[in-house]
Amino acid sequence: MRSPRKLLRALPLVELGALVLVALACLAFQLRLPDRFPAEADYRAVAGWLKAEARPGDAVLLFPWWTEKARLYLPPELPVYGYLGSDGDDLDAHPRVWVLGQPELPRADAAGFQAAFLPGRTVQGAPRRAGRLELTLYENGRHRPRRFVASEAYARARVYLESPDGQRRDCAFDGRTHRCPGPPHLYVAPEWHEILYQPRRCLWMHPPGGEQRLVAELDGVPGGTELRLEGGIIFEHAWQRSPRLSTTYVVVEDAATRERLLEVAQPPGLEGVQKASRTLPPGEPRTVRVWVQADNPESRQMCVELLALGEAS
């Protein structure tokens, strides 16, 4: 057996060897890195394919999620998804999903992506390559056809502030927005907002405060569908946990019977999209009331969507 002294004497050489190997690996990484990126022509080629082949209702999903440079080139009418967590997004508004991937990027976790994305999806044809870009079409088994979308039907809604005694103050529609009496943030209109990094087009419904409710009455919600309420507090406000902040309630009621159909409650500190759903019995389209309420409206900026979904295709 070699003496410890001899081993210790050999250590600097071993250390130097390791350092040289690390440096060689680093140099190789730095020199090869630019080759892993797509060229502008690659993006244009993909944009051309999508322009020619994408159907209305299709969407593009980016992999890795942050490769948003593609937005510069892709057809603007095609929704592009890429946000922290988008790998697991059902994208249930879209029957088909084009995955635009860059699997050769460092730390692009293709296995992780597939584990989140593939369940319920069926690949349609072979992936196509344009340089380092890989475009693959999938049939989206998680697709749920929309029978009713509140943010699309909002123009026909009746919007008002409602006091606990039932008194109402109407929010006048100006062609784009239902604007309520009171502070300027009291209105209802579809807008883009962030809920826990996710871009969402949803109905801005800020609670008026106290026991007052901001109500939107929506007609034409079809029976025999899954009624789904999705909402959340936007931006950084959901994260705040101050004791003076209040829980925000979003409730869906049948306008005629006042039966409570759905409800989500978002206490301070709870982040992300809150969801509730139920199956509506078959029957005539109904009118529903969606209302928001929070005792203290501070930092309770709520964005809401109400959907009636058909059967999975």
Partner: peptide, 11 residues
């Protein structure tokens, strides 16, 4: 390089 450069860090 340990991070995988900027793309690795983004992921």
């Amino acid at each position: 390089e340990l991070a995988g450069g900027l793309p690795g860090a983004a992921s």
